[in-house]
């Protein structure tokens, strides 16, 4: 009986160097896995976060009548890789995020570049937008955001004729343990074509469920682009840059064959590793069909006329 070894390879050569260098953390992961596997985990400790109500919210356009996801689920199931790749962890970990003082630098191809304090952004007229949110992983939520259209912010800086794209950059703080890992190219960056950014569906959100934005959902201010996969809606934004060239985006840089620049929700274009035809709405048992442009085709399909959406995924 011969069991052939996989050649003569030292364990350190099998393991990618980046992982090998983190072996202590790996041990912690294993330890936590063994301990947490039997006793409960983050899953079992989901809690309603403390909430600060926002006043003066008016009902906005485009709101869906789909039943809303519970506040508890929307605040305990979050992709926020700056904190953790586990979706149940940001709820607790993001408490550390420093949301004051906060400024958003708006620059690039604009007539009046500005550094805008969060207080001024919070003073903008607020409206509620109840949007569907479809994650590229195959689940979705319905979230009542509070915020204002991105075009309002653009008017504050007067984009020039050269502004063809907009880049959104997320904060990078020492409160974020996830950025010590090269999972993505930090800081997190996302981008839109200027016409996508200026579309009335695109909003800068400062809250949800009538409350100040919880940290794990991208406090104090984030982007929401409801017809694109969730990762396009960058959280905790500190810099907005109007550019003449298409900016690089975090997930596209990480895996260009899996995450395109556009990343419009499209049931007909599968992720290379899984189908995008259906989704699990959080709180529902059966899966539901995914809609073209996440159900916003009527509003946004015209942005892409003549484009091959299979190629420009």
């Amino acid at each position: 009986m011969i069991i052939r070894p996989p050649a003569d390879i030292a364990p350190s050569e099998i393991t990618p160097l980046s992982v090998h260098a983190r072996r202590r953390d790996l041990m912690r992961v294993v330890g936590a896995g063994i301990a947490g596997g039997l006793l409960g985990s983050g899953v079992a400790t989901a809690a309603e976060p403390a909430a600060t109500p926002l006043d003066g919210i008016v009902k906005g356009r485009f709101s869906t009548t789909d039943p809303q996801t519970s506040f508890k689920d929307a605040t305990n199931y979050n992709n926020f890789y700056e904190f953790s790749t586990d979706k149940y962890s940001p709820a607790g970990m993001a408490e550390r995020l420093r949301v004051r003082p906060w400024e958003v630098v708006v620059e690039g191809e604009v007539a009046r570049p500005r550094t805008i304090g969060i207080e001024e952004l919070l003073r903008q007229p607020r409206e509620e937008r109840i949007y569907r949110m479809r994650c590229v992983e195959g689940w979705s939520m319905v979230i009542p955001w509070v915020g204002f259209e991105f075009s309002r912010l653009a008017r504050m800086v007067e984009p020039t004729a050269n502004a063809r794209f907009v880049e959104f950059i997320t904060a990078r703080q020492d409160t974020m343990p996830g950025i010590n890992y090269g999972i993505l190219d930090w800081p997190y960056a996302e981008g839109l074509r200027i016409d996508e950014a200026m579309h009335p569906l695109t909003i800068m959100a400062i809250g949800m469920y009538g409350q100040v934005m919880p940290n794990q959902n991208g406090a104090p201010i984030r982007l929401v682009v409801p017809w694109k996969y969730g990762f396009k809606s960058a959280k905790s934004i500190v810099r907005i840059r109007f550019t003449s060239k298409q900016p690089g985006t975090a997930w596209n840089k990480a895996a260009a064959n899996e995450y395109g620049f556009y990343s419009n929700v499209n049931p007909e274009v599968d992720h290379p590793r899984w189908s995008q035809a259906t989704e699990r709405r959080i709180g529902e048992f059966r899966k539901r069909p995914t809609l073209m442009f996440n159900g916003y085709a009527e509003q946004v399909a015209s942005l892409y006329t003549g484009m091959d959406l299979r190629k420009n995924f």
Partner: peptide, 28 residues
């Protein structure tokens, strides 16, 4: 193959498996 980006956990399992398989060689 199923994880989106963070390979830490799968690689821990793969690493332990490799160790288990290699440790059988002297026994065999």
């Amino acid at each position: 193959w199923l994880v989106k980006r963070d390979l830490t956990e799968p690689l821990v399992y793969a690493g332990i498996l490799a160790l288990l398989l290699v440790s059988r060689v002297p026994i065999a």
